[in-house]
């Protein structure tokens, strides 16, 4: 816009000078004495205006290739197969969150804040030692304890569905103390992203 204006101004100046030259060719009706020390008309060299500077189109900035976020781009199944959400383990016949479980939930809360669109099912599980019937309710308590803690860290409750599986789905089918410890847990499944 600025360049166009300057170019227009140049054209106007040139046109005025051509007009002035034409007038000067007419026979004068009287020859006035030239004014003393009349200043010479300013010498203007008429020449076409300089072409405008080529307008350089701003180069499209090709962004530096972004490294794909493996978490953001993974399918739900892949995410859950190698979940960024850690299980929270419980003591025998307990739904209290011990320090280790709280640490796991702290990390999970950070993940859930980073991926704020995810919705999660919090599964409650038990080892095989209690009864099948009571364990449904115990698993529920564990899942609710985990959910309550996540909510306290600012995760909206409507992103966290709770389901208890009692002792129906042990993660380790063994019958050892170590297997039992793995089976007493709140397990997190990403259901939407």
């Amino acid at each position: 816009m600025m360049k166009t204006a300057r170019w227009m101004a140049g054209v106007t100046v040139a046109a005025l000078m051509v007009a002035g030259a034409a007038c000067g060719k007419k026979p004068p009706l009287e020859q006035p004495a030239p004014p003393p020390n009349a200043p010479s008309p300013p010498l203007v060299i008429a020449r076409p205006p300089a072409p405008p500077e080529p307008i350089a189109e701003p180069a499209v900035a090709t962004p530096a290739p972004v490294r794909e976020d493996p978490i953001a781009s993974a399918s739900l199944d892949d995410l859950n197969r190698n979940s960024p959400l850690k299980p929270a383990f419980f003591d025998y016949d307990s739904s209290e969150l011990n320090a280790e479980a709280q640490r796991a939930l702290d990390e999970n809360a950070a993940v859930l804040k980073r991926f704020a669109s995810w919705t999660i099912t919090v599964e409650g599980h038990c080892d095989e030692r209690g009864t099948a019937e009571y364990n449904l309710a115990l698993g529920e308590r564990r899942a609710v304890a985990a959910r309550t803690y996540l909510v306290s860290l600012g995760i909206p409750v409507d992103r966290l569905r709770v389901v208890s599986y009692g002792k129906e789905f042990p993660f380790d089918p063994g019958h050892t103390e170590a297997a039992f410890a793995k089976n007493r847990r709140a397990h997190f499944v990403i259901t939407a992203k």
């Binding site: 449904l136 309710a137 529920e140 609710v144 709770v162």
Partner: peptide, 11 residues
């Protein structure tokens, strides 16, 4: 039946 439908961990 038993239910923990209130969501507070009680059944």
């Amino acid at each position: 039946f038993a239910s923990s439908r209130e969501g507070n961990g009680n059944t």
